[in-house]
Design a binder for these strands. Structure first.
Lengths: 348, 348
DNA sequence: ATGAAAGCGCTAACAA
DNA sequence: TTGTTAGCGCTTTCAT
C-alpha cells in the first residue's frame, strides 16, 4: 500500500508550483512544451493521481449521484439502476447506492446522509407526499420516481392509470367478466392502477374484486393465491400489483391444481425479465424501467448543468402491454403451440 | 437550497471553539451540561450537519466501500449487492457501486478511480490473474470473488468444482448417460465447473459433450438450444453455465416441441430467484450469492478494522444442490403432481 | 505562462 | 473540560 504522492511532490519533482500542476491536471490552461514535458514526466514517475476528495472540498462537486431505492432485488429497481448507471458512466459520474430495504425509519436517515456526499439524488420511495418538502430541503437537486402532487419537484414516472386501463381492457376483450385485483396497498402506485382498471371496468359495467398482498414479492403472491382461487367468488382473471406477485400467484395456482391460463388468466405490471421464462409466460405491462433510470439520470445531470428549464417537471413514459401466454380468451380451448406439446423429434 | 452552516458558525453561535464542536459531533469527549446544552441548541438552530468530505480528508476514511460487479441485472450479482449492502448498512458504511457492464477496457479505469474514493473494495471481475497485483497496488484493501492462485489476496468464492460434481452426480443417478455442458468460456469459473462434472462422469465412464454460449444470459441460452437439441448427438441432460442460460434453453426447447423434463433434463448454477417460477421449475446449484456478498463485506470491514489474521485468505462457501422439476429420472413417466393437472375445482 | 497565497470545513495534537 | 493552531490536498484569485 503506497501512500499516494501529493500535488506538492509533483510540483517539487517538476520544479514548478502546485498551481501549475493543478492547472495541468484540470486542463485549465496551456503550457510551454518544456513545462508540459516535465510535468508529464514527474506525474508518470510518481504515479500521481489527484485526490478527488480534496478537489471536491473546494469545488463542492463530487461527481457522484445518490440513488436510493427500495430493494435492489426487485427487477424493476434493478433495471432502474442499470439505466441510471449507464447514463452516469457516460458522463463520468459514479453511483452511490442506497438500498433502504423497504424500511421507512432508516430511509430518512440514509437519504439525509446520502445527500451530503453527492451532487444530486434520484429517489424511489414510499414516503408520503408531505416528506417531499423535506427532501427538497436537503439542498441537493433531486429527481423523484412518481409525481408529487403538491411540490414542483422534477420526477419521472409512468402512467399507472393508463397501464391499469390497458390491462383491464385486454382482459375484458378476452371475454373475462370476473376480474380480481391483487394489489399492494402500501405502494404509492397501487391506487392509480386500481383507478385505471376501474375506469375500464365501469365502461363495461363490470365489478372489481380487490385483494391485498403483504409485500411486492413472489412469496406474497403465493400466499394470497388460495384466498382468491378458493374463495367465494373465484375470478376468471386476476391482475397483480406487479409481476413478482403474479409469478408467485401462478405457481401456487398450478400447485392448487388449476390449469393456467385456461382456468384463470393472470397478468402483472413491470414486465420483469423472467416473466418471459415463466410458464405460462407472463402477460404484463412494461413500464420501461431501464429507460426510467436513464431518463431520471439525464434529467438530474441536466439540472446539475443548470439546464433547469427543459428538464424540470414531470416526465411520463408510456406503458406498453406485453401479451404472452398467461392471458387467454375466456373459455377458449388450449391454444395449439402455446404449450407446444406436438411434434417431438425422435432420435438418439 | 440552503448553504449548510459550517462548524465555525456553530462555534460562534454556541460561544465555544470549533474544536469543542468537533469533539461534540464525534462524541469524543464529555462536556459540562451548560456547554452541551448550548451546543445542542446551536446545532439544532442552524440545522448543522458536519461535512463528511472535510472529515474524510483528515481522517483518510470515507466510510464508503466500492463494489465492482459485471452486471447488476444478473441475479447472482444482485444478490451479492444485497448481501454486501446489508452488512455495510449495519456498520454504517455506504456502497459506491460500479457496474462495469462486462467491459474489460472500462473496468480498469473505473476501478482505479473507484479506489480513490473508498476505504476498500469488493471486486468481481473477469480480469486475468496477473492483474491482481495491479489491484493490490491500488493501495486499498480488496476482497475478490474467486480465488487468486498466485497472490495472497483475501477472497470469497464457492467450490465450483464440487458444484459441478454434485450436479453431474445428480444427473447420473437419475439415469442420464448423454450429458452435455452448455458453458460460458469467457468466465473465470467455467473451467472448474467442467472439471467437477468431468471428475464425476469419468467415474462412470461417461462422456461429456461441451458447447459454449455467447453470454451468461437467457437469450444466449435460447440461441444455443437448437444446436444442442437438433444436433447429431442429442443429450438426455444438459448442464448450463448458469440459470439464466438454462432458463433460455428451456424456453427454446419447449418451443422446439420438446417435452421437458421428459425429453431432456436441464439444470444450471446460481439458483436465481426466478428459477423457482419457471416451468419446469429449475434444478440448480445454490452458491449462496447473498451470503457471498455478506461474507465479502464482513471480511473487508474486518480488515479495515485491522483484524487481518482471521479474515485474510480464501473463504469458500458450500454449494447446495436444489432439486426441482427440470431434472427427472431418465425414461420416467410424467410425475403426478409435478405438473398438477388433476383435481381442478369447479365453481364460478 | 507561471507562481504566491488564501482558504475549503474539518480534526488532532498540544496548551491552558 | 475547553481552546489554539496547524494542517489534510487541492483550487483559485491575483500578481508577476
Amino acid at each position: 500500500m503506497k501512500k499516494g504522492a501529493t500535488i506538492r511532490d509533483v510540483a517539487a519533482a517538476a520544479g514548478v508550483s502546485v498551481a501549475t500542476v493543478s492547472k495541468y491536471m484540470n486542463g485549465t490552461q496551456r503550457f510551454t512544451p518544456v513545462v508540459e514535458a516535465r510535468l508529464k514526466e514527474a506525474i508518470e514517475q510518481l504515479g500521481y493521481r489527484s485526490n478527488p476528495l480534496a478537489r471536491s472540498m473546494i469545488t463542492g462537486k463530487t461527481r457522484t449521484i445518490g440513488l436510493a431505492i427500495l430493494d435492489i432485488r426487485n427487477p424493476h429497481f434493478t433495471n432502474i439502476v442499470k439505466g441510471a448507471n449507464r447514463v452516469a458512466l457516460q458522463h463520468d459520474y459514479t453511483l452511490l447506492l442506497v438500498d433502504t430495504e423497504e424500511s421507512q425509519e432508516r430511509e430518512k436517515t440514509l437519504i439525509e446522509s446520502l445527500a451530503q456526499r453527492v451532487d444530486g439524488m434520484i429517489v424511489s420511495s414510499r414516503m408520503p407526499d408531505d416528506s417531499v418538502q423535506w427532501l427538497l430541503d436537503l439542498g441537493k437537486p433531486v429527481v423523484l420516481f412518481g409525481r408529487s402532487l403538491r411540490f414542483p419537484i422534477s420526477s419521472v414516472g409512468t402512467d399507472g392509470n393508463l397501464a391499469g386501463y390497458i390491462l383491464a381492457n385486454h382482459l375484458v376483450k378476452l371475454g373475462h367478466r370476473h376480474i380480481a385485483y391483487l394489489g399492494f396497498g402500501r405502494s404509492r402506485w397501487n391506487d392509480e392502477r386500481i383507478r385505471g382498471i376501474r375506469t375500464c371496468l365501469d365502461e363495461y359495467g363490470l365489478p372489481l374484486d380487490i385483494h391485498d398482498a403483504q409485500s411486492p414479492s413472489a412469496p406474497a403472491g403465493e400466499r394470497a393465491c388460495s384466498g382468491l382461487m378458493l374463495g367465494p367468488k373465484r375470478p376468471d382473471a386476476v391482475i397483480c400489483y406487479n409481476d413478482l406477485i403474479a409469478l408467485g400467484f401462478i405457481k401456487e395456482a398450478r400447485e392448487l391444481g388449476f390449469q393456467l391460463p385456461q382456468d384463470v388468466s393472470v397478468a402483472g405490471f413491470d414486465n420483469v425479465p423472467y416473466g418471459e421464462y415463466a410458464s405460462p409466460a407472463l402477460t404484463s405491462v412494461d413500464f420501461q424501467s431501464e429507460k426510467m433510470g436513464e431518463l431520471a439520470m439525464t434529467k438530474l445531470l441536466g439540472e446539475l448543468r443548470g439546464e433547469a428549464d427543459e428538464n424540470t417537471g414531470y416526465a411520463m413514459l408510456d406503458p406498453h402491454l406485453v401479451v404472452r401466454e398467461s392471458t387467454i380468451k375466456r373459455g377458449a380451448p388450449v391454444a395449439a403451440g402455446s404449450t407446444a406439446a406436438k411434434d417431438v423429434r425422435q432420435e438418439s
